[in-house]
Design a protein around this nucleic acid. Structure first.
Lengths: 206, 206
DNA sequence: TTTTTGATGTTGACAATGACAACATTTCCT
DNA sequence: AGGAAATGTTGTCATTGTCAACATCAAAAA
């Protein structure tokens, strides 16, 4: 007889899988009420355990937030991979960027936590690690499109552009007339097009 | 006899100018220890008043944070104006962008507060107002440089690019090899150059 | 099977915080 | 001068993050 309970497998001890439950509760709070509302006690309450149970899985409230951010980076990476699958060249680059932006739009508070100051990221090397990997995908896609002299700057520039768009969208700071989806999508296409034309000039200087 | 005490003028009541003192204390905490450490009681302590005095000047802790962010937007706007003074065309545009980035680099936590989720910005219309004004300067500078078809997208694109750079710098998420000032400045120049070339193509489609 | 052990969860406590209410003091307006 | 409004204080409360001590359970050791 296996040790499983209800979920698929590997359900550990008393609760079943508290760590996962806590992260789920925290994620829900984060997305519905903002980062300040993600509290140790509240998260425990939602998971139906005592106020101190979370300490068996996270050293501190900040560690819980770090776990949420890590989760976010993994989801972002997965979404980017999925979107770019099978595509090549500029098409691939574009797909990656659009996926990045879509993530920020779909999960703004998570995105802002990942790139915000709430988290002293130096204290969580695993976070930096996961974060770096999402950039790698972009870098590789750029390498396939831009020639050597300014490859690196081009890659970072693409990231920067996409990140800037994502961030302003997530934070809802775009001017009002871009509130509608169509307008916003058109804007994204326009901006990406401008940068792409700049890249093209880098590729064929004259 | 005027009502002034030590400062120049218009010093209100008991303390002298408590509101200003509280903002100063809050700003110091924000820049030295991060947004989570900006507490009502701590700020009062630093200003040398009782733990409830801040409530006469701010409705809540969040209102204090909003005031700090507002301060930040004003400082950013001023820095941009100063940097662009007298310049025209692309030079002006570039100066604005560089000033924006420099602000984020010099005061990262403030910058991240201004564009972060810690603040429910819908609740502070004054904030949105001040924030909008800093974008206006950019928009005007773009209008002078880009022709009509895609002016608006070009302006927002420029802002987005500059914002993305600023944000990643403030959040210290650029790859390690851009830690040094020179490398970073070179990167900024490169990225801005790519976008500018894209703009140029928009201007002269062939 | 029984024992032991380490991981997991609970109860109780403490200092600090944001917020509210009631009171005190100072400045301004008439 | 006198009242009203603004400003600051003291006292209190529920909530929070964290620590320490205790309880329980699953799995490895015997």
């Amino acid at each position: 007889m296996s040790t499983s309970k209800i979920k698929g497998d590997a359900a550990p001890y008393h609760h079943g899988d508290l760590r996962r439950a806590l992260i789920a509760a925290g994620m829900s709070l984060l997305e519905k009420r903002g980062p300040a509302q993600v509290g140790f006690r509240e998260v425990a309450r939602l998971a139906g355990v005592s106020h101190n149970a979370p300490y068996r899985h996270f050293d501190s409230r900040e560690a819980l937030l770090a776990a949420l951010a890590t989760d976010g980076f993994e989801a972002l990476g997965a979404a980017m991979e999925r979107a770019a699958e099978g595509k090549q060249g500029f098409q691939r680059l574009r797909a990656l960027g659009i996926a990045y932006i879509a993530f920020a739009r779909a999960r703004p508070t998570v995105y802002l936590l990942m790139f915000g100051p709430e988290l002293e990221k130096g204290a969580f090397p695993a976070l930096i690690d996961v974060a770096g990997r999402s950039f790698e995908a972009l870098r590789e896609a750029i390498d396939a499109v831009v020639p050597e002299p300014s490859r690196r700057a081009a890659a970072i520039g693409a990231w920067v552009l996409v990140h800037g768009l994502s961030h302003l969208i997530a934070d809802n700071q775009l001017p009002m007339d871009f509130a509608g989806e169509d307008k916003r999508d058109a804007l994204i296409e326009n901006v990406l097009a401008i940068y792409r034309q700049g890249l093209a000039r880098e590729a064929e200087p004259h």
